[in-house]
Design a protein around this nucleic acid. Structure first.
Length: 794
RNA sequence: GCCGGAGUGGUGGAAUUGGUAGACACGUCGGACUCAAAAUCCGAUGAAGGUUAAACUUCGUGUGGGUUCGAGUCCCACCUCCGGUACCA
């Protein structure tokens, strides 16, 4: 054979086509897996700028695992699709006046081509796009399922409004600075009639069931913080005939209450306005507060508020009259929108009490300054005196419940999910209104409610569908005179909350997926995605899954068993890749220069999958050099047996198998390099060793390994072979090195037979003159770890 | 402020969970090939000291202490950086 050089261009496209034509990565819809392994890379948004390095990292990571699991004879399902609805496509359409479907479809074509060129082994027959009617039919179906189960409702509530994108945003889409996650404009508050999903009904289960999944601990914690579970109590304070309910996590401090505060939105002031002497002043304050944006409220450092003169809350146990304030540091959206002020044991109440000169009464004994929020013995608290905080909580709740003055209560920070969007490029909400304006679900045969094409999608603040000439066609015939369709579209997070179910049965037009197929493949065994989705997509997906479980459609209630995050691939300058910094590395350019195998292997080699890492052009070249060396090794392959090579490859199999199971792909690559350095030094390479090495290499370098495999004369693909088992008996290590420590310091090594006894090693140490200097005294103690170390204390 | 995570050569990163710290790679230096350069190949490469050269010695995983025959790994205190979150009662 003539010795040619490694040139991936000569064979990568060839193999790509052969794999596609022979459908080796496809799984027929009726296939029944015995040993299923469902791998899910996160659903990409097909942006116009094409695949970036982050995508490449996700798909390569999943693909290495997929190829490994296939070689281990798992029935692997690996899939891809498109999160195709959404604002960027619509904004681009507005700019260019070209229909978003057109941009989106060409972006998808581009993505598909790029993913294929990376050699990602997905089953393309299962590709889905959320903007296709046969997909969003089922997004709408899910909405109706929620509606039927009482989980979708319409409410006139204050919503986050982006004045730039002219749409409502979910809480999850508003940054902590109070700006729009997409465009950065300052979000305004606006009252609108919106559709909501009652995710709060599932707060407790969403919180607890995180115990069931194998996710990064940090991710679980972040999601739990977002759900924000607090245990406490509702306490009722009588105000004339009105029961003012407050929520507190510290009912034990009830005897330290010196004031009550209600939020500006609270009903009590309005209900009892006849009794409030300074109602004008109160009304003024409330109006002013409501005018402020949430951001402005948060930014004000000083606490403000107004006393409701003339009314009092009656303390449930002491009967004292407690002053009531309205103040905007109390949020209407949490708890009951009213609190009891215990300035001695709460920092915020303390600040408020100081400003308004209110009584500060210590009820927890401690030598620390007030406000004191720690544990201690209760004092000045009647029947609670002497108890610890925890015991006092228990006791007071029992007393409250016994006397009907309050009750134990768990509260969550999680809010219901607002899903209405006043935009065009999304799935229409499948609701029709009767002439009185009451909502009704569309009839089953009305699905999908198609997104019309005749829309002027320029933003006006009204939903673009309002102006479609055809959107309301046929509605009156179907539902009756005066009936109209809902013109808002669904948040795109609804599309991505269930997509992993669709891959299972992508062509089904009777259901989003058949029960049979759901049983066969779900839940997802491995999900790789970004940490930015923790409090959005991941939470919503878990919610959807639990609703399906409650509906009896599936028999599991967590969609993603194992979940990991990929780290950020940063630019060579260490900054996040961005046009702004001019540090963007385009995967296609690197594939063009070095081939896909180099890009894949480099992305894995640069560091642990979950860690952020910076691109390094020189290191990429190093990976390419490694693959070239592997290429050249093929010319040394021979039939000659070699026991050392046998031994080494078996050690390699053992180590690499571990790395694969731990998803430690960087060390997997390093060990392949190490072994190729070893082969480099051999005169000849035993063919069986070479074949096993190629199989070990194939997950990260599918093209190169396939080409070299075929050059051995094989007609079937390397990717359908079996991962080699390691054979301990083949590992012959006649001589190994044992570290010698004397008085805790490493003083060198001795070479001994593997599995030597302590005496054998000790003799070897005594023979070596090098150690004699340190061993003039008699050893007091010898610690021996077989095959590792001998430690001598003199 | 609170809650997480992490600090290892010039750089990215390894260390079977307590057993020779720095695997693998980049960079750098030296050599081979070449008229020359690139590419490629071979060798060296934690720091300081030491010797003609070696041997060798000391220090070394953010800082300070501790446990242990032995600590990057375990314990205590602190520093720095990065994330998350923030009037959630």
């Amino acid at each position: 054979m003539e010795k040619d050089k490694y040139n991936p261009k000569l064979f990568e496209n060839k193999w790509r086509k052969i794999w596609e034509d022979s459908k080796i990565y496809e799984v027929p819809n009726d296939f029944v897996p015995k040993n299923k392994y469902y791998i899910l890379p996160q659903l990409p948004y097909p942006s116009g700028s094409g695949l970036h390095m982050g995508h490449s990292e996700v798909y390569t990571g999943c693909d290495i695992l997929a190829r490994y699991k296939r070689l281990r004879k798992f029935d692997v399902l690996q899939v891809i699709g498109w999160d195709a609805f959404g604002l960027p496509a619509e904004n681009y359409a507005i700019k260019t006046n070209i229909h978003p479907r057109k941009n989106t479809d060409s972006a998808i074509d581009n993505f598909r081509e790029q993913i294929k060129s990376l050699g990602i082994s997905v089953d393309w027959s299962r590709e889905v796009g959320s903007h296709n009617p046969d997909y969003y039919k089922w997004t709408q179906w899910f909405f109706l399922l929620m509606y039927k189960r009482g989980l979708a409702y319409r409410a006139n509530q204050t919503v986050n409004w982006c004045p730039n994108d002219k749409t409502v945003l979910a809480n999850e889409q508003v940054t902590e600075k109070g700006t729009c996650e997409r465009c950065g404009a300052t979000v305004e508050l606006k009252k609108m009639k919106q559709w909501y999903l009652k995710i709060t009904d599932y707060a407790e289960r969403l919180y607890n069931d995180l115990d069931k999944v194998d996710w990064p601990a940090e991710t679980i914690k972040r999601q739990r913080d977002w759900i924000g579970k607090s245990s406490g109590a509702i306490v009722k304070f009588k105000v004339l005939n009105y029961d003012l309910e407050v929520f507190t996590t510290r009912p034990d401090t009830l005897f330290g209450v010196s004031f009550l505060v209600v939020s500006p939105e609270h009903e009590v002031a309005n209900l009892l306005k006849g009794h409030i002497k300074n109602y004008n002043e109160v009304e003024n304050y409330v109006e002013n507060s409501l005018k402020k944006t949430e951001l402005e409220r948060l930014q004000q450092k000083e606490k403000t508020g107004v006393l409701l003169e003339g009314i009092y809350g009656i303390h449930p146990f002491t009967g004292e009259q407690i002053p009531i304030f309205v103040a905007d540091y109390v949020l209407s959206s949490y708890g009951t929108g009213a609190i009891m002020g215990v300035p001695a044991h709460d920092e915020r109440d303390f600040e408020f009490a100081q400003k308004f000169n209110l009584l500060i009464k210590r009820v927890i004994d401690s030598d620390q300054d007030l406000p004191f929020e720690g544990d201690g013995k209760l004092v000045n608290s009647d029947f609670l005196n002497g108890l610890s905080v925890d015991d006092a909580k228990e006791k007071i709740i029992a007393e409250l419940e016994k006397n009907n003055l309050g009750y134990a209560k768990i509260t969550y920070k999680l809010r219901d999910w607002s899903v209405s969007r006043q935009r065009f490029w999304g799935a229409p909400i499948p609701i029709v209104y009767d002439p009185d304006g009451n909502p009704h679900p569309v009839k089953d045969d009305d699905l999908p409610v198609l997104l019309p094409d005749d829309v002027d999608f320029m933003p006006t603040g009204q939903s673009p569908l309002t102006y479609s000439p055809s959107f309301q066609d046929g509605v009156e015939e179907k539902y009756g005179k005066g009936w109209r369709r809902e013109v808002d579209t669904l948040d795109t997070f609804m599309c991505s909350s269930w997509y992993y179910f669709r891959y299972i049965d992508p062509q089904n037009d009777e259901a989003f997926a058949s029960q049979e197929n759901l049983k066969k493949w779900m839940p997802v065994d491995f999900y790789l995605g970004g940490p930015e989705h923790v409090n959005g997509h991941l939470l919503y997906s878990r919610f959807f899954t639990k609703v399906l479980f409650d509906e009896g459609i599936i028999d599991f209630d967590e969609p993603f068993l194992v979940h990991r995050h990929q780290g950020l691939v940063k630019g060579p300058d260490g900054r996040k890749m961005s046009k702004r910094w001019g540090n963007v590395i385009n995967p296609t350019d690197v594939i063009e220069k070095y081939g896909a195998d180099t890009v894949r292997t480099y992305l894995m080699f640069m560091g642990p999958l979950e860690q952020d890492k910076a691109w390094n052009d020189r290191a990429v070249a190093g990976v390419h050099r490694f693959l070239s060396k592997v290429w050249n090794l093929q010319y040394k392959v021979s039939k000659d047996e070699d026991s050392q090579q046998n031994s080494e490859i078996n050690k390699l199999i053992a180590k690499i198998t571990q790395d694969m199971e731990n998803m430690s792909f960087n060390t997997y690559c390093a060990k392949l390099m190490e072994f190729s350095n070893f082969l480099q030094k051999c005169q000849k390479i035993n063919q069986q060793v070479w074949e096993e090495f190629l199989i070990l290499l194939s997950p990260t370098a599918p093209f190169l390994s396939e080409e070299l495999w075929s050059r051995l004369g094989y007609k079937d693909s390397i990717h359908t072979q079996k991962w080699p088992d390691f054979d301990n008996s083949q590992i012959v290590d006649e001589v190994i090195e044992i570290a010698v420590q004397i008085n805790g310091k490493s003083r060198g090594i001795v070479q001994v037979r593997a599995n030597s006894t302590q005496d054998e090693v000790w003799n070897e140490v005594l023979k070596n003159p090098k150690f004699q200097n340190y061993l003039s005294d008699k050893p007091q103690k010898i610690i021996f770890v077989p095959n590792k170390i001998i430690s001598i204390v003199v």
